[in-house]
Nucleic acid binder design. Structure first.
Lengths: 256, 256
DNA sequence: AAACTGAGTTCCACATCATGGAACTCTTCG
DNA sequence: CGAAGAGTTCCATGATGTGGAACTCAGTTT
């Protein structure tokens, strides 16, 4: 563990140890927790109160014992949902990268950006940029535009700040963006040609959950010189099929 | 929230806010986190390092961005597993309480004690003690003895400290306890008559997972004067059936 | 290829906050 | 009814957490 030698914050360390104690014991009282941590019970009480304020710990009644709280499930849920999606989709993202030879990405919306969760490089992609973990502007990417396309007008207003220009081809007009999102809804996929970077083309399709809601998107991207109009004609159906297959695995039915 | 007015620990509060930020954004850098918390980036770095030491946060590479870590899943897992079990079993514990009229409990082993997860009182049980959340000695309860009965000799040695006497009927000899655990394995259930408290009788049966491992137990308990030998003859099969049904729901096959 | 920029990381003097101790409240038990 | 023990509150003190300066490193620009 590379950073275990870095200085830690003692009170944070103690609070997290309380969580570990409660995971192990199920429930514990303040005095018991104080004994486990070898601190005074007023110290233990304050640490537990802080955890309780964040819902990571709950108390049975007003003066009872403590146990782990639902706030932990909420935090863990954010992680599990993303990990599950990545794992569930992996065979398909791999196959799509193999079939197209290009870079395949999986993204979700995180507030005002597209969050890249996974990336598989195809055989033609040599030194491709690693997008995983990065927040990329929604309006300038095929993934982002797919994710935006299913938002209500209110949600769309929230999700968009000012539309920054990255290339001459970047959409910076909200009216123009709305029009394009409508087109994406109709055709079922989105394109971004030289919009984030000159020379970069991507196609993305929506991934749906059991209810039909768009929860993620999958894209195929590569240099514009390679992803010509003819080449896109072949890649677009492959991307749509991959997105459909992932959606199917998540419980979505083909016909709505 | 009853204790939100209690003093909290600022640095713990900040660390937990980092977890919430990462749940929301997916990933974030130190400088970004510092901006969100309105602290210096060296402060943010130290807080993140502490979270990382406990595996609640992970870093992409040596100098990359941070995201929530698997340590969170481990903590949440302890909570979810217990909640899932309680919810899955609830219709059956309710039915058993209704059928027998007595108090029904669900327990798991937490280190050296039986941790009571759920309790449903029957019609005959008026002012019964609420066991939920409590750690009760394993050797002196029917639930505890069931949980002990499936341990290996090494695990048994670890799980037992000294066997405290609570009543004249409490088993305090390890040799005698081992003998009784063998009998429990044979007959498939355990009895505790006046062992924890004079006048308290309980029968417990094992709950198994898909692999057949004992992961919990269910008990019927009531006053000794009501749970006579004749009455137990009726209650024991009901308790066994309930345990079997819960096990079945968890994926266990009747015939191994 | 070199310089610049910005993010992550380390170290340290100082001030703020976390601590333990005393005391209080409340529940359970004898 | 009193004792015991757990949870909770308040406060003076000092230990720890902080911000600032400086460093390292990777990516970008010239």
């Amino acid at each position: 563990m590379s950073n275990s030698e870095a200085a830690t914050v003692q009170s944070v360390d103690r609070a997290l140890t309380i969580l570990e104690v409660l995971a192990r014991l199920g429930t514990a009282g303040v005095t018991e927790i104080a004994a486990e941590l070898e601190v005074h019970k007023s110290t233990a009480f304050r640490l537990v109160s802080t955890l309780e304020a964040h819902r990571l710990v709950e108390q049975a009644g007003d003066r009872g014992r403590y146990s782990l709280g639902v706030g932990l499930l909420r935090l863990a849920g954010a992680t599990t949902a993303r990990l599950d999606l990545v794992q569930e989709a992996r065979p398909i993202t791999r196959q799509l990268a193999a079939d197209t030879g290009e870079t395949v990405n999986l993204t979700v919306r995180a507030e005002h950006a597209a969050l890249y969760l996974d990336q598989v490089a195809g055989s033609s992609a040599l030194q491709s940029h690693n997008w995983v973990g990065q927040h990329i502007p929604l309006h300038a990417t095929s993934n982002g535009k797919v994710l935006l396309s299913e938002l209500t007008p209110e949600q769309l207003a929230d999700a968009l700040g000012s539309l920054a220009r990255f290339t001459p081809a970047t959409i910076t007009s909200k009216a123009q963006l709305r029009k394009e999102l409508e087109q994406i809804r109709e055709q079922g996929y989105s394109l971004a040609i030289d919009e984030l970077e000159v020379g970069l083309t991507a196609v993305a399709a929506p991934i749906r959950n059991a209810h039909g809601d768009v929860i993620a998107s999958i894209s195929v991207s590569g240099p514009t010189f390679r992803l010509s109009a003819e080449r896109l004609d072949a890649v677009i159906p492959q991307c749509l099929a991959a997105a459909g297959e992932i959606s199917h695995r998540l419980g979505w039915s083909w016909r709505e």
